[in-house]
Nucleic acid binder design. Sequence first.
DNA 1: TTCTGCTAGTAAAAGGTTTTACTAGCTTAT
DNA 2: ATAAGCTAGTAAAACCTTTTACTAGCAGAA
Lengths: 351, 351
Amino acid sequence: MAKRKAVSIKDVARESGSSLTTVSLVLNKRDRRISEATRDRVLQTVQRLGYRPSRLAQGLQSQRTYFLAILVPQLRHAFADAYFGEIISAIHDHARSAGYKVLLEVADEDFLGTRQHLELFDRHFVDGILCLGVTNRDDYLSDFERHDTEQAARPRPVIIVNNYLPGHRFNFVRCDYHEAGRMACEYLLELGHRAIALIHGAAEVQTTHDFRAGIEEALARAGLKLTPQRIEDGFYTEEGGAEAAAKLLKRDRAITAIIAGNDKMAIGAISNLKESGLRVPADVSVVGCDDMHQAAFCDPPLTTIHTPIYEMGERACDRLLDLIEGKVASVEETHPVTMCVRKSASAPRTE
Amino acid sequence: MAKRKAVSIKDVARESGSSLTTVSLVLNKRDRRISEATRDRVLQTVQRLGYRPSRLAQGLQSQRTYFLAILVPQLRHAFADAYFGEIISAIHDHARSAGYKVLLEVADEDFLGTRQHLELFDRHFVDGILCLGVTNRDDYLSDFERHDTEQAARPRPVIIVNNYLPGHRFNFVRCDYHEAGRMACEYLLELGHRAIALIHGAAEVQTTHDFRAGIEEALARAGLKLTPQRIEDGFYTEEGGAEAAAKLLKRDRAITAIIAGNDKMAIGAISNLKESGLRVPADVSVVGCDDMHQAAFCDPPLTTIHTPIYEMGERACDRLLDLIEGKVASVEETHPVTMCVRKSASAPRTE
DNA sequence: TTCTGCTAGTAAAAGGTTTTACTAGCTTAT
DNA sequence: ATAAGCTAGTAAAACCTTTTACTAGCAGAA
């Protein structure tokens, strides 16, 4: 019944008839000085007692936790989202292969109000943080801005994943949403579309503006403009995409193609178009962005821009480790995207 | 340039002119013995120096980590899944409100091969583990089975979330998939269906069998049987659901309704049926199970069984804390499900 | 012989907290 | 007057590692 205590390095030392220093040296492979006989004796005792060093004590000593935090924005049940899920997956996989564990945190009012993002570092919860779904209203980020003039008291390695904030000195790894917008739009232009509308994501997300700028650039080259009445906000959700599509076509029946800032909005839009009796792509073409898993399974399968989300997560994690280990002082990376053609876009209807 | 050291309780003691014990007593509210003057002096110093206790040191002392691990099965990018995401979300929310942090782990070959599930406890990574997506091939679970005859050396609190393994003494919180199968089937029977097929999930998952048993019970009451040729495995994925639907209808054109073990397979099935020129629900009705967010946004909106996934996660987390704190010795809970009628099922076609 | 240098190992400090057991100084009771 | 008890606080142990600085014993060199 008695709750036996966990076995510690002291027990191993006693049982193997050597000092605790010796045990530690053996276990940490700094054992050049230790004779083979002693080493074997220690190792056998470790095995026999089932000794496992406590990471709390190790962390206390090394001042390292080998934990990373993933900071996710507050959404409806934040982790039930395919986009974030994919990135989290990538980070987890990479972190583990590098010997790190991964902590989940949601950056909601409660979390930020109690300044938990700083406590994560100051109370030795983690060695670094990866920020997902960042917006330009996330003021807390300024606590992590780089000041190259003077080194911070204790560095707090942080990376923004698949986004950035222009005019600030944050570390980021992202893919090129300007290019994504341009590619989507040029694809539709080549198919012959002239009346192209945009359902964009939340305005407080920088990539939203990049995406739009890319579209406008492509349109401009074709001598076209993106008028305000051909733009709607879809808030990155299915519902938002559906409503936005309804509004757009109510205002302007001439629209033959819609570009959505992500796949969820594209799927929402398609669902609404079909409900109101329009065929996709025969009547209206739809192009998404992200190429999430589900994109291949909707009806029709979604033509979209493939953004290498998983690779972004991996890469961001890898660079964060570089920051933690002091191998680099800053990270600012932008990666390319590719076109992914399926069935939701075709030549425009001829009226 | 110098990396200044973090401020510790010693600094606060020195600066406030009191002993380190006093500071600790004040901070832990065991300060009945400390005069108000001293308390204020200490608190002010804490504020001024920005002192935050290290959780590594606290953990070392208390032998508690206030971390929980979520153990997820290895799937294609495990966290990009709506079902698991929802549960993770629930666990995170509840854990945080109780002062716990949440660790993510994937139970893959590498993880289990190095017996990380035990290290999580033995090396003081976590106080408890929540297992998601458990199958009867997860042998590692036996390391966590309850042995009521004798108390384990150190208890290792573990809960299986939304599943169970019959014939074993595991802690679990789940919802009633037998009832779910029965409800889905009875609904279709009431609509007039007689040729009902099943796309079930992975056979190594216990709830798969419960779900099927529920269906068979309902069919039996109506004097019907579920013949082997009206059953296919859809592996819980969209692709699997699509293929299963194709096989079923190829084998037996008489089928008028399909029940799928989860919404993903139902959506995959619908996608395949439509591709092969069948209308849903006019030609074939489809009923899913889970009621994930996306179920409302497919075409047609999915009729499904609502399983209270989020609540399962919350509840499991709460009960795990009870186990950790020794308030209970075991947990075995089964919760009810409800029918969610949308548009993917109707009366059968009349030929 | 005495010094140097090496081998194989160990004692002790450090890392930061909580908690137990103790004390100095005072008040109250007998 | 003295014992008992209380108040406000502190010293030290305990939690478990890693790492630094040291030592005993011995071989080889001068």
